[in-house]
């Protein structure tokens, strides 16, 4: 694998994570418990769309085949998507959405904090912009986990259940392969082992403060990095890509 191919993969992965997560958060539009939360979650979705656009555009540029961010978003099939599985899981109840957001935003915060020092100036620039956004997402999710965990018996049980269910999807966030190794060597990618240590410390702190228990590491789901997904991604893409599939080259 060449360095260019590795950068392409790396950006595609981060772009796919943002795009699919954004899709899920957008589903809360008009469905959140209160109007203010509706705006907050869809705002986050818009932040993620912006990041997906930047990452996919850069991936297309590095690839050098003239593919745009739209081409990459709308014309790849399920097996060509490389997001982590946790991003594509259905929203579930509000607690599950918040638990996922805490896990992913914390991951992104530490990932993009380190990526600001990437030897690739485009990735470093996107990271610098992203860090401000995900810091807020992380704080917002963390505050909700505290309120739910330390709230009523019902809210406590729901958030604990969500955390327990999602835990097996968090191991994948720190998986590395050849792509990461090549780029870590050139100081383009970050060391995910360091990110994992900071992630674990932060998550443990939030859960303890919220009177929640931290699940044990048991079996961890995997597959996203190889394009092997849950049954949910296909449904997302069939809706998201419908227009371009039905009317190729459609513009408006």
């Amino acid at each position: 694998m060449t360095e260019e191919q590795a950068i392409y993969n790396y950006c595609l992965r981060m772009g796919d994570n943002s795009l699919i997560q954004s899709y899920r958060l957008s589903e809360w539009c008009s469905n959140a418990p209160i109007l203010e939360e509706d705006l907050a979650l869809t705002n986050f979705a818009l932040d993620m769309i912006g990041r997906a656009q930047a990452m996919l555009a850069y991936a297309g540029k590095i690839e050098g085949k003239g593919r745009t961010d739209d081409d990459l978003a709308y014309r790849r099939s399920e097996r060509q998507y490389y997001n982590h599985l946790i991003m594509e899981l259905p929203n579930g109840d509000f607690a599950k959405t918040i638990a996922r957001l805490l896990f992913t935003a914390t991951y992104e915060f530490y990932l993009f904090t380190d990526l600001q020092r990437s030897a690739d100036p485009t990735i470093a620039a996107i990271a610098a912009k992203t860090v401000k956004e995900v810091k807020y997402h992380m704080a917002h999710a963390g505050d909700w986990v505290l309120r739910l965990g330390d709230g009523t018996e019902e809210s406590h049980n729901r958030i604990q259940k969500a955390i327990n269910k999602l835990w097996m999807y968090t191991g994948e966030l720190f998986e590395t392969d050849e792509t990461d190794a090549i780029l870590a060597d050139k100081n383009i990618a970050v060391d995910l082992a360091l990110v994992k240590a900071k992630w674990t410390a932060h998550i443990t702190g939030v859960l303890k403060e919220a009177t929640l228990s931290v699940p044990e590491d048991e079996y961890m789901q995997t597959g996203g990095r190889k394009g092997v997904h849950t049954e949910h991604l296909g449904h997302i893409l069939s809706e998201m890509q419908y227009l371009q599939r039905a009317y190729p080259e459609a513009i408006w």
Binding site: L35, E36, E37, L39, A40, N43, A139, H140, D143, R147
Partner: peptide, 9 residues
């Protein structure tokens, strides 16, 4: 939460 909601809204 009031401050965050105000920010988001």
């Amino acid at each position: 939460m009031a401050l965050q909601n105000a920010r988001d809204t």
